[in-house]
Design a protein around this nucleic acid. Structure first.
Lengths: 148, 148
DNA sequence: AACAGTATGTCAGACTGCTGACATGGGGCA
DNA sequence: TGCCCCATGTCAGCAGTCTGACATACTGTT
């Protein structure tokens, strides 16, 4: 079987190409994060907390594109490892704001470096200008989707 | 919690934006395919077979970004539904080339229309020229990644 | 003050996909 | 021919995620 033959009509689909790049990125991130014993959702959680401290479980879930239930497990694992803390009781309402510990910040820093290297390598065929344009164009597709 | 506040530094990451668009696309495809009782991997399998008849299980798995084992289950379901056929014995080697049935082609046609409509809607904020450029730029990121 | 509506955190069950492992068939080389 | 390596198809076991459900806490209305 030819392995790199012409990709046919699917290659003309923006969605299919998008999926390919996403799959490549996901695989590369998995490999880069494995030495740190982190999964991609766990890394996403740390990164979000690093940039938005005291985010609640539900809010983290939305931004990481998983359900509250899944994010809940992620938070527990990270809490068991001492990378973040959550109050036993809600300071207000039911939200339990999660915060990175010093260890959490250290791991996040290492993970962030690894992931940025992965991104840089993956998108290296594009100039900085092209990367910016792709990012902005893709971002433009998110705003109007009131449904999702 | 603000729901559409400035996305912080993560919004500047091509990878994060890519993930968002991918999530939107995935969700929209799920909804569009549900009436046809098809999952996204099942649709991918049909689409691949429509464009490349007689592809083997392993080859389909590679192109749909799943494992052989997962694709094997997809093929069984589709075979049970009579949307495709596989020979009981391998005509050569161990490969069992799958082929769409007439029903399979009919379902594929409907699914393809639905999915193309989803893509068109999702990327509607971009001009055709922008869409072509995004596609080509993303495709450029796939070639050099010899690792996969 | 009482109510409905909404949002959060959590538990239980089911499903999907992946990793690991095994047997079979083909191609290359001594 | 016999051996080694690789690819394919398949089975078993496990982790991750989702759907559905429930109790709790805030908000707006009457």
């Amino acid at each position: 079987m030819g392995q790199a033959e012409t990709v046919g009509d699917l290659g003309l689909s923006v969605g299919y190409v998008l999926k390919q790049v996403h799959a490549s990125l996901r695989t590369a991130m998995d490999e880069a994060l494995r030495p740190l014993d982190l999964t991609v959702p766990q890394y996403a959680c740390l990164e979000l907390l690093g940039q938005h401290p005291a985010l609640s479980n539900s809010e983290l879930a939305r931004r990481a594109f998983v359900t509250r239930q899944s994010m809940n497990l992620v938070l527990r694992r990270l809490q068991e490892r001492g990378l973040l803390t959550r109050p036993d009781q809600a300071p207000q309402g039911r939200e339990l704001p999660a915060r990175l510990t010093e260890d959490g910040r250290t791991v996040l820093r290492q993970a962030s470096v690894a992931v940025r290297a992965v991104e840089k390598r993956l998108f290296s065929p594009l100039s900085r200008e092209q990367q910016r344009r792709v990012r902005d164009d893709l971002a433009a597709c998110l705003r109007p989707s009131g449904t999702g």
